[in-house]
Amino acid sequence: MSSSPFPLFPPNASSVATEMDLLYLFIAAVSAFFVVLVAALVFVFAVKYRRRHPDEVGADIHGSLALELTWTVIPFILAMVMFVWGADLFFRLSRPPADAMEVFVVGKQWMWKVQHPEGKREINELHVPVGRPVRITLGSEDVIHDYSIPAMRVKMDAVPGKLTTLWFEPTVAGTYHLFCAEYCGTKHSGMIGQVIAMAPQEYEAWLSDAGTGAGGVSAAANGEKLFSEYACVTCHKGDGSGRGPILNGVFGSQVKLADGRTVTADENYIRESVMTPTAKVVAGFQPIMPPFQGTISEENLIQIIAYIKTLKASAPAAAEKK
């Protein structure tokens, strides 16, 4: 990517990279101006007003309100511009587009395990198509890691005990560095890999190429299997006759809790309800579900969530919601 013998920027490979670089250059330009200004002032003063006689003292000047206001207000305004621009960019990078394709990534000492919704799995690599937003749902099996792709200008902590997300839209095909950016022990600097952005048709070919490990069942199908294996299905029955709430259509809906609060059923809510079910009990149900903390891995949990996401509301439930 960079043909320059002395590159100052990582490859520009995502839809936000150019804006990120511009924000960086803007703050760098402001900083350079002030560094040069301060350096020039003190150096010129130090030379121009150098002591010429041992008894000499400086002029009797105590201050200037006008100057104080000037160097209070101008830095304040510039800092606010940097704040607003940075906050705006951050908010956009915190909200994945609705049409983003989803990939699940779990960090563990010291590797990245990736699963595509179609079932394809990778370790320390991530294949993505160019021109489509990719949303990564990130978990950790042990300590805090951080999924960092400098070429895409994105980074997010993988925090044990919760799921986090990041997204990016690759714009240029290529192979890019992937790092763990949060210190995680002995082989932290070996917890690296590659992000391979491919033309869409190549990506489709890769996805269906059995030679690279395709042909596995999809994440949701695996989740359905786990849903039976962990006996979730005995209580969470689709027809409402079980002892637990119906899960059809629950993902993304508003759930009323026993303590009167209402929460949105997102990935973290479902994760928490599996791991520590008593944390948020659905109104009208008893806290009888056993906690799965310690018995279910993050990877399996992500698949169960993928399955629950596919459960569409049956007609009566949908009608009730409206």
Partner: peptide, 10 residues
Amino acid sequence: FLASMGLDIH
């Protein structure tokens, strides 16, 4: 640079 949230991501 680091206080500017968006840039801090990178």
